[in-house]
Write a protein that binds this DNA or RNA. Structure first.
Lengths: 205, 205
DNA sequence: GTCCGGAACTATACAGCGGCAAGTTACCAC
DNA sequence: GTGGTAACTTGCCGCTGTATAGTTCCGGAC
């Protein structure tokens, strides 16, 4: 395939490189032309596969929702429960920062894309089932809707703050010493619906 | 001042219009040139006041941190407590959506700007004091650092999800009927550190 | 009153960008 | 070998941010 004229696997290569660039410089720093130059193809080659710049971002978001849904489903099948679903959510954001950023920034996307809509619906369904698993854990709360919002908000907020560096720049991260993010997630989200373990001794207070 | 040549109050006008555009089309749909055209000045006029496109966004972010700190301080002076500090945070995001978006997206900003740093430090100090007011409420939690992260994350996550429209598009908003956002905030964040009120009857379950 | 300096703009130029239309290459089926 | 099609390239357009040089206007010094 890769014969000097045809790249052979351009679609996948574009998505991979786009994710790298967005991770480094944010969605605004991502340009189709410099991306094409990086891959050694003409500046309109990506357009053939994605139609537009927005098309690349849509593809990334779709990939992201699919991956997130997969991970949440695996956790559900393993009876991971609410807290571990939260860890899965935050871990996903750290593993796929560019995808996560694009997924939740609708101004970057074409909302009418059916593929995107379907992937998002599937992911949201898994997400809600994660919070609803609280009932199975015998920790059901009186205010169901509030529990869904609280559960989603706390992990989404934590993921967003960690990803954008605001956890570090605010000094909040220092409070935890060198505790890793999954542990921080468990301890913080654990405050939501039940008693939490006391913090270890090796931390700043 | 406004003599046909000199605008007279261009700096403020640029910030106001920039906030409008970003609110409508997101931070990536905002262009200096179209903004200058809207205001009837040459396309380099904004550059005189802000140096660059980034400079406009930095000014917006600085304004935002200052406003947020002010609101949080007023709540603290009024002994509003943790939950109302959370409502203040979410309300701020709704009242100043463009500012909020830019404030927490570092890839849009020049982090070395001293004015921005100072405003952010002041706002974060107020923020932490909001969570720490939990102790005064006699609802102190064993895990202090986790409480700070949990408190901030839940309101930041809720504000972000509401602002980006993800609360609506996910169907989560429907669970609350036409309940307003401050109430949703109180009920959700209220699950964090204490018992919550049961939901009213007029909601979907 | 006029001279001068600085603040607040405009004019012009340039490279990089996304999108579009038309042309090119390589393969594959027949 | 011929036709068709998928995967590209080339050339162009208007828009964008940035840089530099020039213009307008106000205010104070004298």
């Amino acid at each position: 395939m890769a014969d000097g004229y045809h790249h052979g696997n351009l679609r996948a290569a574009v998505l991979e490189r786009a994710a790298e660039v967005i991770t480094e410089k944010g969605p605004y720093g991502f340009s189709l032309r410099s991306l094409a130059a990086d891959l050694g193809v003409s500046h309109t080659a990506p357009r053939y596969h994605f139609g537009s710049r927005e098309g690349v971002l849509n593809a990334l978001a779709t990939e992201g929702f699919t991956e997130l849904a997969d991970r949440l489903r695996i956790n559900r099948d393993a009876r991971g429960g609410f807290l571990e679903a939260g860890v899965v959510y935050v871990d996903f954001a750290i593993d796929f920062p560019a995808h996560f950023t694009v997924m939740f920034e609708p101004s970057l996307l074409d909302q009418d894309d059916p593929g995107l809509r379907a992937a998002r619906v599937a992911a949201f369904a898994e997400l809600r089932s994660g919070v609803e698993s609280l009932a199975e854990e015998g920790r059901g709360v009186a205010d169901g809707p509030a529990a869904v919002v609280a559960g989603w908000s706390i992990v989404h907020g934590l993921a967003t703050l960690a990803l954008t560096g605001n956890l570090d720049v605010s000094g909040v991260r220092e409070l935890f010493g060198d505790t890793d993010l999954p542990t921080i997630t468990r301890r913080s989200a654990g405050l939501l619906f039940g008693p939490s373990d006391p913090p270890p001794d090796n931390e700043v207070e």
